[in-house]
Write a protein that binds this DNA or RNA. Structure first.
Lengths: 217, 217
DNA sequence: CTCTTTTCATAACAACCATTATGATGGCGC
DNA sequence: GCGCCATCATAATGGTTGTTATGAAAAGAG
């Protein structure tokens, strides 16, 4: 109490985040079932003492890891969309972000899968997850609306189409993660986008391998 | 060996199935993480001796439960589609089967969710799961094709649309299970079906509460 | 430097797990 | 009725888990 609260929380918050990142890596690599306190500690390079010091129980660690992953995801999407200039580029970015060609990003789908089933047993966390998803869906809607006013896609109901796209991506990503057929998933997504008026040239750009996935258009 | 193999396997097979059903109920109710041998035994009304006698290890019990659920699901869908006479009825049946209004059937989505994440750590089982899904997707395609030749829906690529619908349903069901907003999910699905030419009267039938969910059209 | 508090490692604990071993029971062929 | 084998209950085992307790180092305030 004698020290400014901001400094204390800054240091500890960084450590806390470090723990969450370690947990996140373990979950994404081996799954939640084999994610143990000791395993997370080993991953982060410390002992379980750190975990117990910053978190009241394991549940909090898991939730922290999931929350961190969600925040990172939505932040990254917003950043990439902002850096994509034209409506066309934004559409391409959306597809690439949703169904990545990069192996490490594909592996993140395991995290989402684990997160969903975990949320099924934790109503409070499920509510947070649904809220985060609403942000993602709205982001999709914004891209669609902008593309629409630019005449890049047809004049469908953007709100409905955003909901459809968000759910379609959920299903496609999940299946692709299970089957390993990411190209098929992306092709299906693009074929669907074609039905709402995305032109063939844009379709081709969406399907391009594009080794470097971060640099967008 | 002194007794006809068919008789032996008939009796034991029934018991085996009984175990799978018990496991399935526990998973759907409490999730895979708290599904233990003792819990499954208690659910089935026997002891762990039965489990260990019919299954080499827990993994096999889980896989058996999942396989039984998958088989039941695909069998039920086929049955309900067969009993639905017209192409219109089949479309309605498809929507109702995918996103049920009945609480017990909705709860089954927890099973699917658990199944998917489990499959993520078991490539062999994941392959089975993908194969089963292909059957389901083909069933959707058949319904679409029939509706198409009857002029009930527009002239889209049935194969592509079946893939889209299968994934869309995955995402919609999963989200609905997490959020509890099943009506929204069904409405989104119907709105999407409207874009492939499903008429307004059919749309209304799909959205009807229809208390009794089993008796179809 | 001294005291206080945060930070963390280590070890111990009690609970629970899957699995195995053992023996009782009952049906079925002969 | 005898013996055999499938069936199952019971109990024990070895390992792992989340959590807690304890104390040492380190950092910061005065």
């Amino acid at each position: 109490m004698t020290v400014p609260a901001t400094l204390v929380s800054e240091r500890s918050e960084r450590r806390r985040r470090e723990v969450c990142e370690a947990a996140r890596r373990v979950i994404a690599r081996k799954g939640l079932e084999v994610t143990t306190m000791r395993e997370v500690s080993r991953e982060g390079g410390f002992t379980t003492g750190v975990l117990t010091h910053y978190f009241p129980h394991k549940q909090a660690v898991i939730q922290g890891a999931f929350a961190a992953a969600s925040d990172d995801w939505i932040a990254e999407v917003r950043d990439r969309l902002a850096r994509a200039g034209s409506p066309e580029d934004q559409l391409v970015t959306l597809v690439r972000a949703a169904l990545p060609a990069d192996g490490r990003r594909q592996a993140e789908w395991r995290l989402w899968s684990e997160m969903w089933t975990y949320a099924g047993g934790d109503p409070v966390f499920a509510a947070q997850l649904v809220a985060t998803d609403a942000v993602w869906e709205r982001e999709i809607g914004r891209v669609l609306l902008r593309a629409q006013t630019a005449g890049v896609i047809a004049d469908v109901d953007a709100r409905v189409e955003a909901a459809v796209l968000a759910r379609l991506i959920d299903g496609l990503g999940l299946r692709a993660w299970l089957s390993g057929r990411w190209e098929d998933a992306r092709r299906t997504l693009v074929q669907h986008l074609a039905t709402i008026g995305v032109g063939t040239s844009l379709q081709e750009r969406m399907l391009l391998p594009c080794g470097d996935d971060e640099g967008d258009p």
